[in-house]
């Protein structure tokens, strides 16, 4: 079922991820992988519901390490982490794709190292790079793309989604229909927050 802005975000959505610690990411090796753990969104919403930063931003890309998302899509989010938390009240930034959690973890660590300027005393949202395994969550809500012709299988589409952790309402949904980041880039996604 397709999402509309104003809809309730569904229950029991689980991604998988290897947690990334912003405080130590600068010295972390992209090759040192830990074991992936489930990311239960219900739990995350509960944790953020009564905080001063209840917005959860989900940004989806068709693939880690692919040219467009690496170069244009995700870096603006990572260069604005402090603004996301303090101005846009974002408690968690979740980057997802259908790649596995190991790949997303490596990609996330490298992108954060390259793009984000984080200090030990800074106030930032949680930054999570998570797998939507086999694009199941995205596909169930008309947010997947079939890249089988390129040998990439079913992938998560390029989209941005904002959920209010307290009401669990979808505050923003922007899916790309053409190449580019017009609806899912930092400017579009944060313009209504």
């Amino acid at each position: 079922m397709s999402f509309q802005e104003g809809d309730q975000f569904p229950k029991d959505v689980t991604f998988t991820h290897v947690p990334i610690d912003l405080a130590t990411v600068q010295t972390a090796s992209a090759l040192a992988c830990e074991i992936p753990t489930p990311l239960k969104l219900d739990k995350l919403f509960d944790q953020l519901a009564d905080t001063s930063s209840p917005n959860v931003v989900i940004v989806s890309v068709p693939g880690a390490f692919t040219p467009t998302c690496t170069e244009n899509h995700i870096p603006p989010y990572l260069t604005h982490l402090a603004a996301l938390k303090n101005d846009k009240k974002v408690g968690a930034l979740i980057i997802i794709s259908a790649n596995d959690a190991f790949v997303l973890n490596a990609w996330g660590k490298l992108l954060i190292k390259n793009e984000a300027s984080v200090s030990a005393s800074g106030d930032y949202p949680r930054v999570i790079f998570a797998s939507d395994p086999a694009a199941k969550f995205s596909a169930a809500h008309d947010l997947s793309v079939d890249a089988s012709a390129n040998g990439m299988g079913i992938r998560t589409a390029r989209y941005g989604l904002v959920v209010d952790a307290k009401s669990r309402k979808i505050k923003y949904l922007g899916k790309e229909v053409e190449r580019g980041v017009k609806h899912s880039g930092y400017e579009a996604v944060t313009s209504k927050l």
Binding site: L31, G63, F65, V103, A106
Partner: peptide, 14 residues
């Protein structure tokens, strides 16, 4: 079975 972009990144990381 990873896609070529992931494999390319991995080779360079190695």
């Amino acid at each position: 079975i990873n896609d070529p972009f992931v494999n390319s990144a991995w080779s360079k990381a190695l």
